[in-house]
């Protein structure tokens, strides 16, 4: 029986190795399968995967309005203190209403973990696909996400 197993082993090994070699030979002759992106050369035609995450942005509409209520859920959700929400109180109709003054985002600390986006109750922030972030001064990585003079969109609580 030992001899039978030995011979079976040898043939099994040969067969499995041949399978692997067939695959690599297929790749060798099929250059269309190459997945390498020649990045700086194909910058204009670069297609990023749908789930690629580059940085956190806050979309504004044409009236310079955003959806952020200043609830600070994103700040709480962030694992490494990337987001600081600085709030102010607007007087609307004689009532005090909480709103954001600045939403400070430290790109140099961000790990693109997507937790803030999931935590946001009003879908005010989202992940953008930009990725060419390099700058000469570190301070340029500290970004204020809301545009100057922007307001909260009506109907968002």
């Amino acid at each position: 029986m030992a001899v039978g197993k030995y011979i079976k082993d040898v043939f099994g090994v040969v067969k499995s190795l041949a399978t692997g070699m067939k695959r690599t030979l297929y790749y060798f002759f099929h250059h269309k399968e190459i997945i390498t992106q020649e990045y700086p050369d194909n910058r204009d035609t670069l297609v990023l995967p749908e789930r690629f995450k580059g940085e956190v942005v806050m979309p504004h509409d044409e009236k310079n309005e955003h959806r952020c209520t200043g609830c600070q859920a994103c700040e709480l959700a962030c694992p490494n203190g990337t987001i600081k929400v600085i709030t102010k109180f607007d007087m609307i109709d004689g009532k005090k209403k909480k709103a954001i003054d600045k939403l400070v985002y430290h790109l140099e600390l961000c790990t693109m973990c997507n937790l803030c986006i999931e935590a946001c109750p009003s879908d005010a922030i989202k992940m953008a696909q930009t990725f060419e972030h390099s700058v000469f001064d570190r301070n340029k990585l500290i970004k204020v996400l809301n545009n100057p003079g922007s307001k909260i969109m009506e109907g968002v609580e």
Binding site: Y27, E33, I34, I35, E38
Partner: peptide, 13 residues
């Protein structure tokens, strides 16, 4: 080149 093509890469170019 052979290694690159077998691993679906481009290799030195």
């Amino acid at each position: 080149k052979v290694s690159a093509w077998m691993q679906i890469r481009l290799g030195p170019n």
